[in-house]
Amino acid sequence: NQASVVANQLIPINTALTLVMMRSEVVTPVGIPADDIPRLVSMQVNRAVPLGTTLMPDMVKGYP
């Protein structure tokens, strides 16, 4: 099973992602692959992302 990117904390709308905000976890449904975490750094979320939420491609501005 492939690990996905999961919010490690509440991420407010328009926040630029940092490594501490994300963790990898095997979840269903599958979200953004954990391998993409380095690419996500400094990209902004377009909505508030609660703790434990799987990051989906449509939540991150400019992804992929």
Rank of each mutant, 00 (worst) to 15 (best):
I32P: 00
I37P: 00
P50M: 12
D36G: 06
G62Y: 07
S42I: 03
I32S: 01
Q9D: 09
A16V: 12
D58M: 10
P50D: 11
N8M: 07
T15D: 03
P50C: 15
P64C: 15
I32N: 00
A48D: 14
V49D: 02
L55G: 00
N46I: 15
V5D: 01
I37S: 04
V45G: 00
P12D: 13
V5Q: 01
E25K: 06
Q2F: 13
I37K: 07
T15V: 12
A7K: 02
L19P: 08
Q9S: 08
V20A: 08
N1V: 15
V20M: 10
V60C: 02
P50S: 12
L19Q: 11
V6D: 00
D36K: 10
S42K: 07
M56K: 09
L17V: 03
I13C: 08
A48V: 13
L17W: 00
Q44I: 11
V30G: 11
G62R: 09
Q2G: 15
M22T: 00
V5R: 02
V49E: 02
V41F: 05
G31R: 02
T28F: 09
L17T: 00
P12L: 08
V45Q: 02
A3G: 15
V27F: 03
V41R: 05
A34G: 09
Q2R: 04
L55A: 01
R39V: 11
D35H: 09
V27D: 02
A34M: 06
P57K: 10
M43I: 04
T54A: 08
P33E: 06
P12H: 10
R39K: 15
S4Y: 03
L51M: 12
V41W: 03
A3Q: 09
P38Y: 10
T28I: 06
V60I: 11
D35I: 09
P64Y: 04
L51K: 12
I13H: 10
L55K: 00
V45D: 02
D35G: 11
L17A: 00
N14E: 10
D36N: 09
P38K: 10
I37G: 04
V26N: 12
G62C: 14
V20E: 11
V45I: 09
P12Q: 09
V26Y: 12
A48Q: 14
L40Q: 00
T28S: 08
V27N: 03
P64F: 05
G31E: 01
A34Q: 07
L10I: 13
T53M: 14
V6Q: 03
V30C: 15
L40H: 01
V30Y: 14
Y63I: 04
D58W: 09
S4W: 02
M59D: 12
I37V: 05
V27G: 03
P50F: 10
P64N: 15
R47S: 11
A48T: 13
L10P: 11
K61Y: 08
L55Q: 01
T18F: 03
V30S: 13
P33R: 07
G52Y: 05
R39Q: 09
G52I: 02
P33V: 12
L55C: 02
P33S: 14
N14S: 08
P29S: 04
N1G: 15
D36H: 15
T53Q: 11
N8R: 13
I32M: 03
M43F: 11
M21F: 04
G52S: 07
P38R: 07
R47Y: 09
A16T: 09
V30E: 15
P29Q: 04
L40V: 05
A16L: 11
Q44C: 06
T54L: 04
T28G: 07
M59N: 04
T28K: 04
P12M: 06
D36F: 11
V5P: 00
T15K: 06
L17P: 03
T18C: 04
M22C: 03
E25N: 06
L19F: 07
M56N: 06
M43Y: 12
I37D: 01
Y63C: 06
I11G: 01
V5T: 07
Y63T: 04
Q44L: 07
L19R: 10
V60N: 00
P38C: 08
R23Y: 05
M59T: 05
V49N: 01
T15I: 05
Q44W: 09
V41T: 07
V41Q: 07
G31C: 03
N1Y: 15
V45C: 05
V5L: 03
D35F: 07
N14F: 06
P33L: 11
M22H: 00
P33W: 06
R23L: 05
N46E: 11
S4F: 03
M21V: 03
N1C: 14
S42G: 15
K61T: 12
T53K: 12
I11K: 00
D36M: 12
S4A: 03
V49K: 00
L40G: 00
S4H: 01
M56S: 14
L51I: 14
D58P: 07
G52F: 07
I32C: 04
L10M: 09
L17Y: 00
A16P: 08
V26F: 15
M21K: 03
V30L: 12
N46L: 14
V6E: 01
V60R: 00
A3K: 07
Y63H: 07
P12T: 07
T28R: 03
S42Q: 12
N14K: 06
M43N: 05
E25Y: 05
T18G: 04
G62V: 04
L55V: 08
A34Y: 07
S24I: 13
N14Q: 08
M22G: 02
K61R: 09
T18V: 09
V5K: 00
T15M: 10
S4I: 02
